[in-house]
């Protein structure tokens, strides 16, 4: 089977993120970048499925030349080849889903795995848009508490199982009050949640091999997608700094404050 996985370039959560004084964006200088952790989970899941069912994992990223770094990371983990949609400048979620739709129509994968959101602007939209554009079934927030005890234990109830006939996928997903199981016809869209798996480390031989794996370059123009943003970011600002807490003398004082000031009890 063929699996298409997204690999977005995002700010490393360990970097110190600062908003530019004029509010036009964040300070890029000195920042480190990495693959969106939810996408990395997607690559891992794709590799596990392909290990079981044969086929290939194709990774796709949209952005300037620098996103090749994230594509190479996915290739180093074991993905087979990559598609790079070369575009610099602002993109909104609709444009991204539009570009992905064209890539999907070109690649014809059996399954598309995306992160449920990317950790830079946390929109949680692209997977859903893409399913709508393609008219495919979708199973968002694929998740399972993975046991780290043993290989056997780990593989007991995978959250993503492809049916014996290769025509359906069963997905365990995290919902507010527990786990829900969905069955979808393939091709389908799946988005990953944090607990789906533990992504493997990129090995040194993997990194060396990734150097010679192909990255195909596409552009919005080649794909015939108008990426003029429908959404404009007017201003960014840091959330207000948290005020220092206070100490109360005893429990009755605490209850009094919760009741009269916070009005929660």
């Amino acid at each position: 089977m063929k699996i298409l996985v997204t690999a977005k370039r995002v700010e490393d959560p360990e970097s110190k993120i600062k908003v530019k004084p004029d509010g036009s964006g964040i300070v890029q200088e000195g920042l480190k970048y990495k693959i969106n952790p939810f996408d990395e989970i997607g690559v891992e899941e794709g590799l596990r499925l392909v290990a079981k069912h044969q086929g290939e994992v194709v990774v796709v990223s949209i952005g300037g030349k620098e996103v090749q770094e994230q594509l190479r990371h996915a290739l180093a983990m074991g993905a087979h080849r990559a598609v790079w949609v070369n575009h610099t400048g602002p993109l909104d979620q609709l444009a991204i889903a539009g570009l992905l739709q064209k890539v999907v129509e070109k690649e014809k994968p059996d399954l598309v795995i995306l992160g449920k959101q990317s950790i830079d602007d946390d929109q949680n939209q692209v997977g859903q848009y893409l399913a709508e554009f393609l008219g495919w079934g979708q199973a968002t927030f694929a998740s399972k508490v993975e046991s780290l005890e043993s290989e056997q234990e780990k593989n007991k109830v995978p959250a993503l199982v492809v049916g014996a006939d290769g025509k359906t996928v069963r997905v365990i997903r995290e919902v507010d009050n527990g786990l829900a199981t969905l069955e979808c016809q393939l091709p389908a869209i799946v988005t990953t949640d944090l607990r789906l798996n533990q992504p493997r480390y990129a090995s040194l031989p993997g990194i060396m091999k990734a150097k010679s794996k192909p990255i195909e370059e596409l552009t919005p123009a080649k794909l015939g997608v108008d990426v003029t943003p429908a959404i404009q970011v007017l201003k960014m600002s840091a959330p207000p700094a948290r005020k220092a807490g206070i100490k109360v003398a005893d429990v009755p004082a605490l209850v009094e404050k919760l009741h009269n000031e916070a009005k929660v009890v």
Binding site: E69, R72, A76, Y201, I207, M208
Partner: peptide
Amino acid sequence: TEAQRALQEAARKYA
């Protein structure tokens, strides 16, 4: 280079 940074990152993660 990008590949050197990838090797560094892999070793750093292990460390």
